[in-house]
């Protein structure tokens, strides 16, 4: 146990020293919030009495889960594998699962820190819809998303050899999610064929879930979304199991 705690503390420092991670996880989402929020923030949202910004907050939080998975975790695992750091852990008595767990915990930290930051900044600028219980429920849903998306990140890391190639792969996953799953714009305003495409993306269900609970919906209303997410988690776990590699 002591070993795991020390490893988590060690990795925590490494993550904080990586300015690319800090930029993409803690600065970029806030930039998006301020830019898109200042353009559309006060426009009426999809539901009565709510504004664009109210559904944009949970969507950005969901985006963070996807970007930490396909960029941060994916690239860090490749770097650690190719330089032989993973091998160093393997010749030491620490369990392989602990190494993955430590990275996952860094990912969870980034996701939650990012979410809190987004909510705080938004509440300073706009008069947002907020309830404490919805926030906790949103965090729970984000963690639930981490279960599947982190495994997707670990699986992707098995496919590429260099961080460059990894970023390329990550883009292929990330950008469709950004545009088709309702993060930056409501799915309703997309052309019909893109709406169809959107229905096939697990990310769409994740964004839907995050927005739903943030806006006060009961978790029981989102059975479909939870079921799709659970299925997606299973698929990602299987993919990670077969694709993730410890050695070059």
């Amino acid at each position: 146990m002591n070993a795991l705690v020390r490893l988590i503390a060690f990795d925590f420092r490494l993550y904080l020293r990586d300015w690319l991670t800090i930029f993409w996880m803690l600065i970029y989402p806030v930039l998006m919030l301020v830019i898109f929020g200042s353009m559309f923030g006060n426009q009426p949202g999809t539901e009565e009495g709510l504004k664009y910004i109210d559904s944009y907050i949970p969507a950005l939080c969901a985006m963070n889960v996807i970007s930490v998975s396909v960029f941060t975790l994916n690239i860090n695992m490749i770097t650690q594998r190719e330089s032989g750091i993973l091998r160093r852990y393997r010749v030491s008595p620490i369990r392989s699962a602990s190494v993955l767990l430590s990275h996952s915990i860094q990912g969870v930290f980034l996701v939650l820190a990012g979410a809190i930051e987004i909510i705080l900044v938004a509440s300073f600028i706009w008069d947002i819809h907020f309830s404490f219980s919805s926030m906790l429920l949103l965090f729970a849903c984000l963690l639930f998303g981490c279960l599947s998306f982190f495994c997707l990140g670990f699986a992707l890391s098995g496919l590429a050899k260099t961080p460059g190639a990894a970023s390329g792969l990550a883009m292929i996953v990330f950008f469709p999610s950004l545009f088709l799953s309702g993060i930056s714009m409501p799915v309703d305003i997309l052309p019909t064929f893109m709406q169809k495409l959107s229905q096939w993306l697990p990310m769409s269900y994740f964004v839907e879930l995050a927005q739903g609970v943030w806006l006060g919906g009961s978790i029981t209303l989102f059975g479909t979304e939870l079921a799709v997410m659970l299925g997606f988690a299973v698929v990602c776990w299987v993919l990670a199991f077969f694709l993730f590699r410890w050695e070059k």
């Binding site: 002591n2 490893l7 650690q80």
Partner: peptide
Amino acid sequence: SMPEKAKVREVLQMFASL
């Protein structure tokens, strides 16, 4: 095979704890 952004002391202490 050592993280580039770690300090020598940190690497030694962390691995000692394993």
